[in-house]
Design a protein around this nucleic acid. Structure first.
Length: 632
DNA sequence: TAGGCCATCTGGTCCT
DNA sequence: AGGACCAGATGGCCTA
């Protein structure tokens, strides 16, 4: 879109139809912001902060026209008189007496350049079509008045007359604007503020400068872009629109044209190469393309992160925002680390605690299912040779979660551990290719905790030749329906023992853990029996393995009164209460909830099926959640 | 309708 | 010099 601005005049010409309001309440210029070298932007407010576009100010003026800065110097003269011709060839007026200018002529806008009409989308936002008279920006658009007969020259005369009527001459304004421009927007270049009455200011962004206004008779004195930039501050300026956010290629092309001019003006291309306009345009396009690609790559990476995040991936789940993704990922990592530590401690307690009075001379034989646990922390058995590579295990996510109809199953987490080094005192480790599947049904009911609802099984058989140290993946199958999350109470398979843990070495072997392990399950401490059957171990692990495939209806049952009170700090209870009251209980919400990224929610995911209890919430809340999680 | 989120353009800065 | 990176600005889309 192109338009012509003429007689940009600030004056005390309130329309009789508009109730004069204290200008300070209506037009409060923001601190001038340098925009594209020499221009500024103002923030228009009418009573309360209001979007600029709703204030009726054309985007070009809001962002580029330096004379808007005059409002700072003329706070009592908020009326701005504008006349422009938009892309569609319609002349419009803002800020002057509607009774005298409403019938604006369209004759001046007709020309051979209506070929630009095709760029306009009827559904696209048109800044000049949104008028807010309350903003006291008098927008007198006569785009639909084809019978008007006021020519631009007549309009100028009328405007000048109005100015004189209010005792403000254009000359005074011009001088003031010149001073203002020199003060605020003079870039130090050769701005001379010539006496040009009509200056073409090529838009920097987007519009088609190849013809938007060339036909207008007022553009006879148009200068090229460089000349116009040197003459910022003149009263009559022709510019083009940036309001149309049409991302079409044509826009890019036209944008690059003006941008290249800026590049040259800026001096970036002041080398001897003397790139011509086409080259500069190509350069601008190239830069834009690179930046676009960069952002696309960034978004792709974020998408990849979302895929491995433990939240519902179903199509009915709203996509995590960028910030939510990052916060969730961060807290997820924290939770995984905590889970790992917890698991280490638990395993150490399980296998190396001895009944009171007995001395742990030898570590308990490690059942096959946990024989592969590789403990990084804790004291090692004296017989255990030093680990050759004590680096922390590397957490890896399966790029794709196990294929099953449950979309919200979390990705498996694999721990890459160094090659196993089995202490001689321990029984041989079950080969990693052994696939065993133990269901809680196999466990006697008397030994089965009430939380035995999940199934843990080895899901992958390494291909032949795979070193034993390679990762194993343990996936957690969903809990049977009707088993709410909070019923997976952390009932220990055996009465909790208060035995002091005896950390003894464990064989170095790959550790397979579920992707998400709820922490702080009460009672799940060192069982009294040093040896557990594989079934028991599986059952125990299942208590830790939180099925994350709970149906969303579980969301509707706020788990707050239960484990939350046990595991959540008070501040987090409040956080949860806030969150839940805000979105969790909104069954009518259009969007399914998305996970709370705070660490506490992740840590207590065993009680709250991760990713199912939050909908979108404001950034402030999300940030607060992050802060809360940081305290955990 | 306000606010959140996003894509895009843009200019500045830093790095290689 | 050129590319990567960053932040500001803007408008569109969507939701509450």
């Amino acid at each position: 879109m192109s338009f012509l601005l003429t007689n940009f005049i600030a004056g005390l010409s309130w329309s009789q139809d508009c109730e004069p309001v204290a200008p300070s309440d209506k037009l409060q210029p923001r601190k001038p912001v340098m925009y594209r070298d020499v221009y500024t932007q103002l923030h228009w407010r009418a009573g309360k902060p209001k979007p600029l576009k709703e204030a009726g100010a054309p985007a070009e003026l809001r962002t580029r026209h330096p004379l808007f800065a005059s409002l700072e110097h003329f706070p009592l003269s908020p009326v701005v008189v504008l006349w422009w011709t938009d892309m569609s060839g319609q002349s419009k007026v803002e800020g002057c007496d509607p009774h005298s200018t409403s019938a604006f002529s369209q004759e001046s806008t007709t020309g051979p350049h209506h070929h630009h009409h095709h760029r306009h989308n009827n559904n696209a936002y048109h800044p000049y079509q949104q008028r807010d008279i309350s903003s006291q920006m008098y927008n007198i658009s006569s785009s639909n008045n084809h019978n008007s007969n006021i020519s631009p020259s007549a309009l100028r005369e009328q405007l000048a007359e109005n100015l004189e009527r209010h005792g403000l001459s254009g000359l005074e304004m011009e001088g003031a604007n010149d001073r203002l421009n020199r003060r605020h927007y003079h870039t130090g270049s050769d701005n001379d503020f010539s006496d040009d009455k009509l200056i073409s200011v090529d838009d920097f962004d987007d519009s088609d400068d190849e013809g938007g206004m060339e036909d207008d008779k007022n553009n006879n004195e148009n200068e090229d872009i460089n000349g116009s930039m040197d003459a910022i501050g003149d009263r009559i300026i022709t510019t083009t629109s940036a309001a149309t956010a049409n991302r079409s290629s044509s826009r890019i092309s036209s944008s690059s044209s003006s941008s290249s001019a800026k590049l040259r003006r800026k001096g970036l291309m002041a080398s001897a190469k003397a790139l011509d306009e086409a080259e500069l345009q190509a350069l601008r396009l190239k830069i834009n393309s690179r930046e676009r690609k960069r952002m696309h790559d960034l978004n792709s990476a974020l998408d990849g992160l979302r895929e491995v995040m433990p939240y519902a991936h179903g199509p009915s789940v709203r996509k995590l925002s960028k910030i939510a993704t990052l916060l969730l990922a961060k807290n997820y990592i924290l939770m995984l680390n905590s889970s790992l530590e917890e698991m280490k401690k638990l395993v150490g307690d399980i296998y190396h605690s001895q009944p009171p009075g007995s001395s742990p001379r030898h570590p308990a034989p490690l059942p096959p299912h946990l024989a592969s646990l590789h403990l990084q922390s804790g004291r090692r058995h004296p017989a255990e040779p030093p680990h050759p590579s004590p680096q922390a295990p590397q957490l890896q996510h399966n790029p794709k979660p196990p294929s099953n109809p449950h979309h919200n199953q979390p990705p498996s987490v694999q721990l890459q551990a160094p090659p196993p080094q089995m202490p001689p005192v321990l029984p041989p480790v079950q080969p990693p290719d052994t696939v065993s599947e133990v269901k809680s049904d196999n466990i006697p009911a008397s030994n089965r905790p009430s939380s035995f609802s999940s199934v843990i099984h080895r899901t992958e058989t390494p291909p032949s030749g795979t070193p034993p140290a390679m990762c194993q993946t343990t996936s957690v199958s969903p809990a049977p329906s009707g088993s709410p999350a909070h019923t997976r109470e952390a009932t220990p398979p055996h009465p909790p023992a208060s035995l002091a843990p005896h950390h003894v070495p464990l064989p170095l072997a790959p550790l397979s853990v579920p992707a998400l392990l709820p922490l702080h399950l009460p009672g799940l401490r060192a069982p009294p029996m040093p040896q557990l059957t594989p079934q028991e171990l599986t059952a125990l692990a299942s208590a830790y393995a939180t099925p994350l495939t709970q149906k969303p209806e579980a969301v509707g049952d706020p788990p707050l009164p239960l484990q939350a009170s046990q595991f959540h700090p008070s501040h987090h209870q409040h956080h949860h209460a806030t969150i839940f009251s805000a979105s969790h209980h909104d069954r009518n919400s259009r969007w399914p909830p998305v996970p709370c990224p705070c660490a506490q929610c992740l840590l207590t995911s065993g009680q709250f099926p991760l990713g199912l209890h939050l909908g979108r919430y404001p950034h402030s809340l999300l940030t607060a959640a992050s802060h809360l999680g940081r305290k955990v």
